[in-house]
Simulated scan of single mutants.
Amino acid sequence: MSLTGKHILSSDLFTRDDLERLFELADVLTPVARGRKVTRVLEGAVMASLFFEASTRTRLSCESAFLRLGGGVTTTTGVELLSIAKGESLADTSRVVSGYCDLVVMRHPDEAAVHEFADATHVPVVNGGNGAGEHPTQALLDMFTMHREFHRLGRDIDGARIAMVGDLRHGRTVHSLIKLLSRYDKLTLVCVSPDSLGMPAPLLELAASRGHHVEVSDRPEAGLRDADLVYATRLQTERFADLPVPYSDEFRIDRALVDRVCRPDTVIMHPLPRDSRPAANDLGTDLNTDPRLAIFRQTDAGIPIRMALFASVLGVADAIRPSLRPATWYRPDFTGPDDAPFYRNTAVEGIA
């Protein structure tokens, strides 16, 4: 299915063929994302970046991706800066903004808002996160990361045991991710959370209906044991700030737990931000130098996969390869001091 002109509101849109085409294109675009090569396939195009809710990675990486493709970006953040604060309807805002740009990336705390916005516009709208609903571009970069990590390890995603742990009720990243994972074959999906923060039942039923083995657990030590991949999420306190939640320190994914129950080749991911405060019971910083930790390889995947998505939605994917040329500016080493040796050795060439 062609993605040209499509709204990207949910991971439901993508087939496995779509994912494989996007991954292939993202591999081609990785040197562009890292400042080694240049393309101008979106020269003259404008993206409107509308973030009604806080964002660092999604907003900056979407904007950087569009700019790396040669396009321009117009941006605003916060409801208080928009005419909505003066009483304008979301539909009116959508119709107006669509006259200024060729594509919109939008984040909003109301799950229905991005759909209302898309209904009122004539340009493609990309969901950058809608409350506790979905985050399809995050799920794309997560799957692209899994694809690369498993390829490096000589494994397939098909047949893998994947543990998702944390706040699975409010975590929009895992809602989109489980939909994409369900496009693969014969997975064991282990959903680990307190009972009150479990994965929504319709998503569990979707995965089971597509032939996957689904397990539910409230014990991280048991749920993470022998996983091929662990996907941790933080407690989404902004979604239920006034409600007490049983979230004990057994949900802290630290080096001791990983060494005790995971294999030496288990991949560990997190959509970030992680809450690094000691009492947060999130992904531990003592894993930072562990090569199993893929969180920064994961964030590095954000720009090339979003470039691939924008190029596909705006119909220029086929023009990328012939347009590539070397960059002429100075670029330092791409990786940081804590990156795994295998990543430092390959990142310069744009192969992760």
Results as ranks from 00 to 15, higher is better:
residue 1 M to G: 15
residue 5 G to S: 05
residue 7 H to Q: 11
residue 9 L to I: 10
residue 14 F to E: 00
residue 18 D to M: 02
residue 19 L to V: 07
residue 20 E to F: 13
residue 23 F to L: 08
residue 24 E to L: 11
residue 28 V to K: 05
residue 31 P to N: 02
residue 37 K to A: 08
residue 38 V to T: 02
residue 41 V to S: 01
residue 44 G to C: 05
residue 44 G to S: 09
residue 47 M to G: 02
residue 48 A to N: 05
residue 49 S to T: 10
residue 54 A to R: 15
residue 55 S to W: 06
residue 57 R to T: 03
residue 59 R to N: 01
residue 61 S to G: 09
residue 62 C to Q: 15
residue 69 L to P: 01
residue 77 T to M: 13
residue 85 A to N: 12
residue 86 K to N: 10
residue 90 L to E: 09
residue 95 R to E: 13
residue 96 V to T: 14
residue 97 V to Q: 05
residue 99 G to R: 14
residue 101 C to P: 00
residue 102 D to M: 02
residue 103 L to S: 01
residue 107 R to H: 05
residue 109 P to Y: 02
residue 109 P to V: 03
residue 110 D to W: 07
residue 110 D to P: 03
residue 115 H to N: 12
residue 116 E to M: 11
residue 116 E to V: 13
residue 123 V to P: 10
residue 126 V to P: 03
residue 129 G to K: 01
residue 131 G to M: 07
residue 131 G to Y: 08
residue 136 P to D: 01
residue 155 R to G: 00
residue 157 I to L: 10
residue 159 G to F: 06
residue 165 V to H: 03
residue 167 D to C: 06
residue 171 G to W: 04
residue 175 H to F: 04
residue 184 Y to F: 12
residue 187 L to C: 02
residue 189 L to M: 13
residue 190 V to Y: 00
residue 192 V to W: 01
residue 194 P to K: 05
residue 196 S to H: 08
residue 199 M to L: 15
residue 201 A to E: 15
residue 204 L to D: 03
residue 204 L to I: 10
residue 208 A to T: 12
residue 209 S to D: 10
residue 211 G to M: 04
residue 212 H to F: 00
residue 225 R to P: 11
residue 228 D to L: 01
residue 229 L to P: 07
residue 234 R to A: 07
residue 234 R to D: 09
residue 237 T to Q: 14
residue 240 F to R: 14
residue 241 A to L: 06
residue 244 P to G: 07
residue 246 P to F: 08
residue 256 A to C: 13
residue 257 L to I: 08
residue 257 L to F: 05
residue 261 V to T: 04
residue 264 P to Y: 03
residue 265 D to V: 05
residue 267 V to S: 14
residue 268 I to A: 11
residue 269 M to T: 04
residue 271 P to W: 09
residue 272 L to P: 07
residue 274 R to D: 08
residue 275 D to E: 11
residue 289 T to F: 14
residue 290 D to P: 12
residue 290 D to G: 07
residue 291 P to C: 09
residue 298 Q to T: 04
residue 301 A to R: 07
residue 305 I to C: 04
residue 316 V to P: 01
residue 319 A to V: 03
residue 321 R to I: 09
residue 325 R to E: 11
residue 329 W to S: 13
residue 330 Y to R: 13
residue 334 F to L: 10
residue 335 T to M: 04
residue 343 Y to I: 14
residue 347 A to W: 02
residue 349 E to M: 13
residue 351 I to L: 15
